[in-house]
Design a protein around this nucleic acid. Structure first.
Lengths: 220, 220, 220, 220
DNA sequence: ACCTACGGGACGTCCCGTTTAT
DNA sequence: ATAAACGGGACGTCCCGTAGGT
């Protein structure tokens, strides 16, 4: 039996009906929590979406919080997958960063409600410890991935030695997430496109040889 | 009677007791809504914070939504005020931008819970139309302010002619807000400081004479 | 303010909205419990019937059991009222008994589901102490009423002195209730009509002068 | 293999273990359903009584409803058997009726919870079609038996020609069942005894020669 | 401005009837 | 025949936002 489990195909000959139901619940709950937040989503909403009753839900999850955590994990996995799909098509580290930025702008989130990381980061600003940890991990992962690429760039002499990889990672993440927020609010992609342009300026700035593409740029 | 003076409501000499109470409610409700979101904040929470009973609250606000709107207005006003305080100390447009960025980093938000704009933008992603409009206005104001400064820079020959002021505005806002989010999540200011550095790179990039400060920069 | 409260008009200037709602719940719950029994009726059924939510119901009744008890009281009051309406039109005790029997046959129960006394008697055969007491009281009341009429008949020399009033009361109640059960089951009134005829035979038997109507009877 | 002998299923020599278990389940389930009704009895109750697990139960019965039906059949068979035992000791039709009435009063029901017919009649007043049919059949059987006796009485000139046998049957059943209900409720046999006396009056009334026992009666 | 009443509805527990794997 | 798994749904508690009365 071949099962789609988040971003991975998992071979599991023993997966039970209950496990499938659990998966289904998670998949349907994820967009709800992502759109309305933890407090703004009710178990009734999940019941409506899944067609299950209370009993069916609570058999698979001990509490709303646990379900929300699972749903977040799923949403994050999905987002990461979409955002990183095809990165390997580029070889040069800077091109990989450019690809990632482009991908983010073009396919902001496969999950209704925007970026699960940002949504949940803000939603769980109060007590919810579990969610908070998960978001923190998510951000750390993302940052690590970007840092690795920048470091690889330095190693390959494509990126200047003095550049702080973490600064670049932070900046990319911050700018993209912030722009996504504005973009969603305004209902148009301008902010995202503007962010992309500025980030590409930034990449050029940290590149070893600036002259390569600099002359062709249009806006400055 | 309330008088709007600059960014703040100032009590008139004839302000009634009721009006004062209303003001007090708003001030105490703002951090609550900003921290826990609309759905996550209850009238009971407001009661606890103000020491008033429900009836007392509903005497001043027709509904929770109205109170939340008022609270958001207050929170936004407060944030804007804090962030723009002292901008006039700098004269050159680019310096003003630098000042604004520095201010944001150092005094991220006087309102517990972070930036009301971002929080509310994400919180009201679902139905809440009133709040959504207010946030949109808030972002537009902020953007307009930044655009005006960049335009002034162009006029003064301090900023290159080809630069799109809106792109700069979008980038600054996006990067600052995104970095604030990360910063709050991580519980340390690194992300904000990194964002600042990158934004200053950006400003230098759009400045007419690059040579001025470029040589002194440490990281590239 | 004039309120219909079960079988009585009650003058109550202070009756609140909540009390009205409570009344409404009872009135709508009574037929449900009477039809499906205690275990067979759910609070959800009551919610559906009243249009209220859980909270609205449990504000007025501490538990399902309490609501069921109140509903039974209402159902019983209603039944008694219907069955005794117009008894006073007859003066002679035996005629009053005949009238009561006739009334029972013709208007077996105003409450969907049949006689609340019988239904509840059988339904609460297990633990439910509260309901059991109420049913017992209901039966006792009914019996007392019939006993009083028979005794009055004895006093007026209309009924033979040796007749045991309680036996007559028990017989009338038993026969009517039993016949009603059969009647409802069969979906036709034959059993009730047969019971009536037999009961009238019985009344004639205990009357002082048998000759009066005996010759005119058709079936024996 | 089961053999129907008189009123009971009797085990054949070749009866399998499974069939025995099924029989045992029915016997233990019958009093439970008879006492608490269909909705008030749970499969868990049956499990507790039989010591079987759910799977064991469902091996023998496709559903709760089927088990309840079987249990009712058993309970009814048992009741009928007890009530008719020894009727043949009397020869004269009226005496047989008197015997049946006496038996009913003295041995109201061998099945805990009272008469299965009455209990189920009232319990299945709502949807349950299968049970309803069984009860209807049960009543019809009983009535037929009584009608046959009365008709035999007419044939033997023991009962007046004009008497409607069905009326007598209906009256006897109704009165006995009604009295049983009262009796069980009150926790004493008075109602049953009173019913018996009245029914004996009735029998005397339909008998051809009244004089026989009339003079010895005490109460009128 | 307080206080209470009101009805809505979320959450979670428990157990029910049924199915499945063993 | 057992035992666990499954999804349904009942019950009841708590608190929410709101409305009125005082």
């Amino acid at each position: 039996m071949r099962l789609f489990c988040g971003m991975l195909f998992v071979e599991d000959f023993t997966m039970q009906k209950g496990e499938l139901t659990r998966q289904r619940i998670v998949e349907l709950a994820a967009p709800i929590f992502n759109q309305h937040g933890y407090a703004g989503s009710s178990m009734q909403d999940i019941m409506d979406a899944t067609g299950l009753e209370k009993g069916g839900l609570y058999r698979h999850f001990a509490s709303k919080e646990e379900l929300a955590a699972e749903a977040f994990r799923f949403a994050l996995r999905n987002s990461v997958k979409t955002r990183t799909e095809g990165v390997d098509s580029a070889d040069a580290p800077l091109d990989r960063l450019r690809y990632i930025i482009k991908r983010f702008i073009e396919e902001p989130s496969p999950m209704p409600g925007g970026c699960p990381l940002m949504n949940t980061a803000i939603d769980c600003d109060d007590g919810n410890v579990l969610l908070r940890t998960l978001v923190l991990d998510g951000i750390a992962d993302w940052k690590a991935r970007l840092v690795a690429i920048v470091e690889e760039g330095v190693r390959r002499r494509e990126v200047r030695r003095k550049v702080d990889p973490e600064r670049i990672a932070d900046t990319i993440i911050a700018t993209l997430e912030g722009a996504l927020m504005i973009s969603r609010l305004e209902g148009k992609k301008t902010a995202l496109r503007n962010a992309r342009e500025s980030l590409e300026d930034l990449l050029e700035l940290i590149a070893c040889s600036r002259t390569k593409r600099g002359g062709q740029r249009k806006n400055h």
